[in-house]
Design a protein around this nucleic acid. Structure first.
Lengths: 203, 203
DNA sequence: GTCTATAGATAGATAGAC
DNA sequence: GTCTATCTATCTATAGAC
């Protein structure tokens, strides 16, 4: 294989461009003509690679979840066996936040548009999303078993609130103001508040 | 005024119906024809009351924020002067969560669709949203001044993460599974974890 | 694998009668 | 204040040449 001049396939350029448009404009405000023009082909060419707009959306969605799942898993595993469960949670939070705010368009494209996709597209994305959810559930369960999270805390609600706080970040984040690291740290500290030694809730 | 037979004006029925459709289907999947048919009028009639679809969206958005702002403020003020700042935060969280999960369609319609509206619509909604944001900022600032939140916690990030965790709830909430109260309590407990006495974050 | 050309559907919006 | 009728624009998707 030639080391230089790696030309991306048209299919890959369609996916990359679609992810960027979906992230920045949303599904409805992204037309097949927009994508074609960005790439420098005609609309009909896209239909050689994807049978429909929904099929294209579905594929970008799948990639988006798989990317963030892989980054989070890698970040946690990079800590090694001796890391505390609080450290593992913090690493997972940082990785997820960075995936949503970084240069990869696929993950934010998924998170920001999933609820506005058709039921068919959502259904086909369900398994890969559920798999990622189970990974977080396992992290939280291990933390609770280890005493990092109090025994009476509802892990299901905790997980959904935690991921929700992160998934909402793209709605308000402006690059240059708050760093992804500071955001992740603040959230990690909130989760740490669920520890058994934390003050009981008032009222 | 007659006590019974209060017939809602067409304008009000358009707004109510639009809020419900925007909440359940999203902006792009709600056509003016859908709304007209739901109400029992013709599409053109809507244009007598609203000059465009965007104008209709903008009005439902404004109502949605004003409603949740009023409910949160009322819930906090109902506590009286002697309530602790933790109690005030908990009451605010409960009120916001209930507004997003309750029968009022306007607030969830706004929250779930704001980022998919046109820049013009978003801009016109900015002031009322900023006002609501300032209210939360004042709640958190008072809590920090009172020692309920540690002095080194970034209140701006905290506010955005907290509201984000709540605003994401409609994405995963299924009525009948977890109660709004249990969700609000879990989140309140997380915020309580930001207290000075809470364990310091790990590594 | 990409093109030209176009079908077919639906959307937001307007004109003018009543 | 609501109607009928229609305009115009845009979008997804397809047929067939190259």
């Amino acid at each position: 294989m030639p080391a230089e001049v790696k030309v991306k396939s048209t299919r890959q350029r369609i996916l990359d461009t679609a992810a960027a448009w979906f992230r920045n404009k949303g599904l409805a405000f992204t037309s097949m003509a927009d994508l074609a023009e960005s790439i420098g082909v005609k609309t009909s060419s896209i239909y050689y690679h994807f049978e429909s707009k929904d099929a294209l959306i579905e594929e970008t969605f799948r990639i988006g979840i798989e990317l963030v799942h892989a980054k989070v898993r890698d970040a946690v595993e990079a800590l090694g066996e001796n890391a505390t469960h609080q450290e593992r949670l913090t690493a997972a939070i940082k990785a997820h936040v960075n995936a949503l705010l970084g240069e990869n368009d696929y993950s934010p494209a998924n998170i920001m548009n999933f609820s506005h996709a058709t039921p068919e597209v959502r259904a086909k994305n369900n398994e890969v999303r559920a798999s990622y959810g189970r990974y977080w559930a396992s992290l939280l369960k291990a933390a609770q078993r280890d005493g990092v999270i109090a025994a009476d805390v509802d892990l299901s609600i905790t997980r959904l609130l935690l991921i929700g706080a992160m998934n909402w970040i793209p709605e308000w984040y402006e690059s240059g103001r708050k760093s992804p690291e500071a955001i992740a740290e603040c959230l990690s500290r909130m989760v740490h508040g669920l520890a058994p030694s934390a003050p009981e809730k008032a009222g």
